[in-house]
Amino acid sequence: MPEVGVRVDVEVTVNGVVRRARVEPRLTLADFLRTHCQLTGTHLGCEHGVCGACTVLVDGDAVRSCLVLAVQADGGEVTTVEGMASPDGELSPVQQAFRDNHALQCGFCTPGFVVSMTAFLRDNPDPTDEEIRDGLSGTLCRCTGYQGILKAVRAVADANRERR
């Protein structure tokens, strides 16, 4: 067990920007993003990996940032919900679909859904509704009843199919 007060250097590329900090080894990636990077779009709901609100991409994989230590992401690339839109502010296809299909309600779970569905649709660009429901199961929503969210993901999948 590390000594109290011990800190380690981490370097993480977050949304294309290299971020360096000296942190306690037990600091979660979620807290690193929120406190050291001032990126508060990564929400903390349960801090036990159950709700999915803190989902980010680490080296392209969707992970719950409350379960990953910042030191584990050292040298890696992290994309948060803030990094989903283009530099000029144009929303990503998933973000736009959530907006267009009223999948936002209170918005607390939205960052987790947007990030996880971005990775899901990258890996499965033309999913069935059953596959979408399974993909959505990793993030909890207490407001929408999931219908708008399902519709938004379906809209992106349909657009993917039309582009091929």
Rank of each mutant, 00 (worst) to 15 (best):
G60P: 03
E3Y: 08
A53F: 12
T13V: 10
D31P: 04
N15M: 05
F120V: 06
V8P: 03
N124D: 03
M1I: 11
R19Q: 05
E130A: 15
N15C: 03
H36D: 13
M84S: 12
T139I: 09
R154F: 07
G16Y: 00
G52D: 04
I132M: 03
R64D: 09
V18E: 06
T79R: 14
G83T: 05
A70T: 03
L27K: 11
L44Q: 03
V68E: 07
G41H: 10
D158S: 05
I149E: 09
S137N: 09
T139Q: 02
L44W: 01
R164K: 00
A119P: 08
N15W: 06
G75T: 08
E130R: 09
R64K: 09
C66D: 07
V17P: 00
C106T: 15
R7Q: 07
E131T: 08
A30T: 15
V156P: 02
V71G: 02
A119S: 14
V12S: 00
N15E: 04
R99M: 15
S86P: 05
A70W: 01
K151C: 11
A62E: 05
V56P: 03
Q38H: 14
Q105W: 12
C51S: 04
M117H: 11
V12C: 00
T128L: 02
L104H: 08
P111N: 13
K151D: 15
R154V: 08
V17Y: 05
E162M: 00
L44Y: 01
V63E: 08
C106A: 14
L69E: 04
C51V: 10
A159Y: 05
V8K: 07
L29H: 02
E77R: 06
G138N: 05
F120C: 05
V17D: 11
A85I: 09
V81G: 10
R161A: 07
G49A: 12
E24K: 13
Q105K: 14
V94G: 08
G49C: 13
R99L: 15
P111C: 12
H48Y: 06
R64W: 04
H48T: 13
R34P: 01
P125A: 03
D74M: 04
L39C: 10
C106E: 15
